[in-house]
Design a protein around this nucleic acid. Structure first.
Length: 731
DNA sequence: GCGTGGTCAATACCT
DNA sequence: ACAGGTATTGACCACGCG
């Protein structure tokens, strides 16, 4: 079986395919490609202007915003079509990139039945030096690329700079081009390679007049500014595309992974590698170099320098081993490139499956609908305080199950693609979930596990797709019907558990925490008594039990199972919280849940003393926030009198190089001064901490301790006392 | 100039 | 550019007070 491992549409409109042969080698083929686009009408009407040469129009079946399909025989014809559409004000909708058009048109997918282990992967990492010891900057002539590390399967190529000259650096960049050409990888992986490695190499290559010929078929890289949405925040990065290859940034994959796991405190390679167990916690066997040491080590101890580079490559590969298979699976499912699978959202992916059917059926396509705001899941905190004998139940795949139970396709899905697709994906997932447990080989089990996990994510996003105004086949009313049934269902469960003598503690969307001493030993029996209230096709599951639960507020609670503590909610685990307050809250929770005999109050007093003496490290008091906009944008905004001003953004303006949107900025608050009272006027980056000239303001942080006590004291039986500490440390 | 009480936007989190 | 719901924080404004 021939498996497609690379695809590129050239400027002449030809498709260049890289196909894996059975022996693992790669073969190139060229195929014809006819670009296409959807049009809202015949350009200029029935008696409109003549069509450009090479353009063929077809009227599509059915109703919809796009009733005409246009095929172009060449890129020139295609450009003429776009121009004609613009001149005649005819809405035109084209899939991007062209590679997706090709895949959709041929019902083809990348990788076919290629095992992940046979994907030709290459890790990349560069080390750079700076003439003056500061952070290396590609724009400075004398800051240089010292080494380029490539790891391709078992082969490692550590290319190094021969001498500190332009000639030598140019030679290094040329060697890199040659190495990539020889290894011919399907994928290039690196940690933060968009924002650092590739960007740095691009700048040096431009300066030294070396082409960035890193693509297949001898093609050059292209760069453009792009943006990725990771949960609530946007990340800005200079995207790099290589014809015929995928570029994968594990720094982005790690952040996408952390949306659901939320266990990472830093996204840096070294920390993440330890978290995932790729390197032992004590760093044994791993060579570490501080940023400032790298340049010197290149000359003083080359072996150590190279060991460090090799370890970076090893960790990067380990990360991609864990995080890339999901996207590899998606690429086999959707008509898109692997790189697109890592950088695009779920809407784009689901849209592609719809459009593939509509294209081949020659059916008119809708435009995305208006979606009115609608009510979501039922959420309520029923109790506050500490409870014992806690059980957790939840409904299995609530929203997908409800969608299938309703069985209705979105309003504009004339072909009825949605429900059959969801059914098929669910059946696939169940099949692979089974295989992940029972398959003979461990590789096979891992592959099945990756598939089922990837399908799970996809299935769960179908509901969100319906409610999104950018989804071509969205249907807000159907989404609203799903949540309405979900609320009703959860409330009937709450009532039923109540009838069975349980104390309901907290309910959120599809799950219920309750306390019941008599059922604690036999939760399955309780489940059997309650489950009959559920409609067919909806299953309730017993998910776990806990010796104690502290209920704080809606969506904010802590669980203790006798071994470990689980925290939920922004109040209890926000990464923006000052570390010393976070530690205090952790102590409180351990104490309340019976995991520790020590009251947090002694620690609180300790903090008071330390703060007063400014003995607490600045890292303990600093807040760290993710930037929601670029510092340059913020600067322009305030220059025009924009408000409100923000402490984190003000701190970002003080840093060089300036951080970007999506980066985290840690800052502390300095002393109050005349005309400088607000936080934003007193904020200073931790990176610029100066204990003598700009120490932190103890009174500011002592006040935070008072606020903490006022908020959490009642759970310890402490009445809130307002102290006058603030006056003692002013100025 | 300073505290207070209210609104609003931004951020981080949950299912 | 998948959804809505909740908690928290800080900026800002109007206000009263001195």
């Amino acid at each position: 079986m021939d498996n497609l491992c690379g695809l590129w549409i050239d400027g002449e409109g030809r498709a260049h395919l890289t196909v894996a042969r059975a022996d693992g080698t790669r073969e190139e083929r060229v195929e014809e490609f006819r670009p296409f686009a959807w049009l809202a009408a015949l350009p200029g009407g029935e008696a409109g202007p003549p069509l450009p040469a090479g353009v063929v129009l077809e009227r599509l079946k059915g109703e919809g915003a796009f009733t005409v399909l246009a095929h172009a025989g060449s890129p020139t014809a295609y450009d003429a079509l776009v121009a004609l559409a613009r001149e005649t004000s005819t809405a035109l909708d084209a899939l991007r990139p062209a590679e997706s058009q090709f895949l959709l048109q041929n019902r083809a997918r990348l990788f076919g039945d290629l095992p992940f282990a046979q994907l030709r992967r290459c890790q990349l990492d560069i080390e750079t030096g700076s003439a003056d010891g500061s952070f290396s900057d590609a724009a400075r002539p004398d800051d240089r690329v010292l080494a380029i590390g490539l790891q391709c399967g078992a082969r490692q190529r550590l290319l190094t700079l021969g001498e500190m000259t332009d000639v030598a650096e140019k030679k290094l960049l040329e060697e890199f081009n040659a190495a990539l050409r020889d290894e011919d990888p399907d994928v290039i992986e690196g940690h933060n390679l968009f924002k650092f490695d590739l960007d740095y190499l691009r700048q040096r290559a431009k300066r030294l007049k070396v082409p960035c010929a890193w693509g297949r078929f001898g093609q050059k890289a292209t760069f453009r500014n792009s943006r990725l949405k990771v949960a609530e925040r946007l990340i800005d990065f200079p995207r790099c595309d290589l014809p015929g290859r995928a570029v994968v940034d594990t720094y982005l994959l790690v952040q996408l992974h952390d949306i659901s796991s939320r266990e990472l405190s830093s996204y840096g390679l070294k920390d993440v590698a330890v978290h995932f167990g790729l390197t032992p916690e004590d760093g044994a066997g791993r060579t570490y170099l501080a940023g400032g040491e790298i340049h010197g080590m290149f000359f003083s101890d080359r072996a150590r320098f190279l060991a460090y580079l090799a370890d970076d490559l090893r960790e990067t590969k380990g990360l991609a081993d864990l995080l890339l298979p999901t996207f590899f699976e998606q690429t086999r499912t959707f008509p898109l490139l692997l790189q697109e699978a890592t950088l695009r959202g779920t809407t784009a992916k689901i849209d592609l499956l719809f459009l593939e059917e509509y294209y081949h059926a020659r059916q008119a396509c809708p435009a995305p609908p208006e979606v009115a705001p609608f009510e979501g899941g039922f959420t309520r905190s029923f109790q506050e305080g500490v409870f014992r004998h806690v059980l957790h139940f939840d409904v299995a795949s609530l929203y997908p199950s409800l969608l299938l139970a309703i069985g209705r396709n979105p309003r504009h899905d004339a072909l009825g693609v949605f429900i059959p697709l969801l059914t098929r994906l669910r059946d696939y997932r169940l099949k692979y979930k089974q295989l992940a447990r029972t398959a003979a080989g461990s590789d096979e089990r891992a592959e099945a596990q990756a598939r089922q996990a990837s399908f799970k994510i996809l299935i769960n996003s179908f509901y969100g797709y319906l409610g999104f105004s950018g989804a071509r086949f969205g249907d807000g009313e159907l989404a609203a019907e799903v949540t309405r049934r979900g609320r009703k269902l959860l409330q009937s469960l709450i009532a039923e558990f109540g009838k069975n003598g349980c104390t309901i503690l907290e309910a959120d969307t599809d799950g219920i925490y309750l306390s019941s001493e008599q059922d604690f030993a036999a939760p399955e029996a309780l489940l059997a008594r309650v489950a009959p209230v559920l409609p067919a096709g909806i299953g309730l599951e017993y998910d776990g039990r806990y010796t104690a639960m502290w209920c704080y507020k809606a969506k904010n609670y802590a669980l203790y199972d006798g071994e470990k503590i689980t925290l939920r909610g922004s109040a209890l685990r926000s990464r923006a919280t000052e570390p010393f307050l976070k530690k205090l809250t952790d102590r409180l929770i351990h104490f309340l849940l019976g995991a520790s005999p020590e009251s947090p109050l002694s620690q609180l007093e300790h903090y008071r003393t330390q703060l007063a003496a400014r003995a607490l490290p600045v890292g303990e008091v600093a807040k760290s926030e993710t930037l929601g906009q670029n510092p340059d944008t913020y600067e322009r905004f305030i220059a025009e009198g924009g408000k409100p001003r923000r402490a984190a953004a003000e701190a970002a303006l003080q840093l060089t190089p300036r951080p970007r949107m999506g980066d985290r900025v840690a800052y502390y608050i300095t002393a109050k001064a005349r005309g400088k009272t607000a936080d934003w006027q007193r904020a200073r980056p931790v990176a610029l901490f100066d204990a003598a000239a700009a120490p932190y303001a103890p009174d500011y942080y002592l006040e935070k301790l008072d606020d903490w006590l006022e908020r959490y004291g009642p759970f310890l039986g402490v009445k809130a006392v307002t102290s006058g500490q603030g006056e003692l440390f002013g100025g």
